[in-house]
Amino acid sequence: MNFTCYIVDDDPDAVDLLQEYIGQTEGLDLVGSSLSPVTALQEITREDAPDITFIDVDMRVMNGIELAGLVNLYTNVVFTTAFPEYALQAFEKAAYDYILKPINYERFYRSIQNIRHKMKKAWRGNSLAPDEFFNIKSELKERMVKVKTAEVIYVEGAGNYIIIHTERNEKHMTYLKMKEIEHHLPRQLFARVHRSFIVNMNHVEIIERNRIKLVNDQELVMGDYYKKRFLDIMDGRLIKTDRKP
């Protein structure tokens, strides 16, 4: 299970230490950091928000507790601080963990393992089976639409909405974020290939360079960040010969 990470701390040495820990931990990818909580707020509250954000509590302009209250719907917050007295406030902001400085690697690694365990349970509980269905509210008020999971070809991000494309040439638009639908789709069947696209791997016909052709003749571009994971999954299903070319 891979996680993207972001660091918010006005101490450059603290940022450097967490960067080092993230870099040496398998399954973690650092996508950004900031010494300013205001800058971090702008970078985190986006569609491609990081999975985990490490936030220092004691910062100027905006403290970490305030920042967490603004970003915790987008990302999973881990507080890093030298002040134990803020722990209660931190967990009121639905923080995943509260790590006291100075941070050693053993404590950092234990926190990541706990997060992996919690998120795996959450995804397992929310994720649908490939043969199930889900309901969405359509763009028309008071209308609920049933969508069969296996019939979804791909999901497209459209600002504050998503568009679900199905085998029946239907397009269902609903007010959801890409991360919200991604966490409810079965991970053995669906993969994120771009910040704006999630594909049903059963409906992928051709992969060539950075492009994917689907069964409905739609061609999608793979984003650099998501490309490796998707290709690793598809390569795992490749039938290979033992013969030398």
Rank of each mutant, 00 (worst) to 15 (best):
V31L: 13
N200I: 04
T80G: 01
D97P: 01
N72H: 08
L30G: 03
P102C: 06
L176P: 04
S34M: 06
L35E: 12
D9Y: 01
Y6N: 15
F108T: 07
S138C: 02
K93S: 07
H194D: 09
L17M: 09
K240C: 09
I55D: 03
A95Q: 08
M178A: 05
E205T: 11
Y161H: 11
P84S: 11
T174W: 04
L30I: 04
V155S: 05
Q24S: 10
M173A: 14
N135M: 13
E20I: 11
R243T: 09
Q19I: 08
D97Y: 06
K171W: 03
L185V: 05
P186W: 04
D131K: 07
I52E: 02
D242C: 03
F83W: 12
D224R: 15
L185P: 09
C5P: 07
A40N: 01
L214E: 00
R46A: 07
M119L: 15
N202I: 00
L140Q: 14
E106G: 07
R243M: 11
I163Q: 14
V57A: 11
N135Q: 05
T39N: 13
L41M: 14
V31W: 05
K118S: 12
L140D: 14
R107S: 09
I136A: 00
Y226D: 03
A129S: 13
V61T: 15
M173W: 05
D235A: 14
R60V: 10
L128C: 04
V8S: 12
E156D: 03
T53W: 03
R237I: 03
L185M: 13
Y154A: 01
T45E: 11
A49L: 08
Y74G: 07
N169Y: 08
A150H: 14
E106C: 08
D16I: 10
T39F: 11
I22H: 04
D131V: 00
R60S: 15
A95Y: 05
L176Q: 10
P245T: 09
G157Q: 09
Q42L: 11
P186C: 08
Q218A: 14
I239A: 13
Q24M: 13
V221S: 12
I207E: 11
V199N: 07
E85G: 00
R124E: 14
M201R: 14
S196K: 06
I181N: 06
E208G: 10
S36I: 08
D10P: 10
F190S: 07
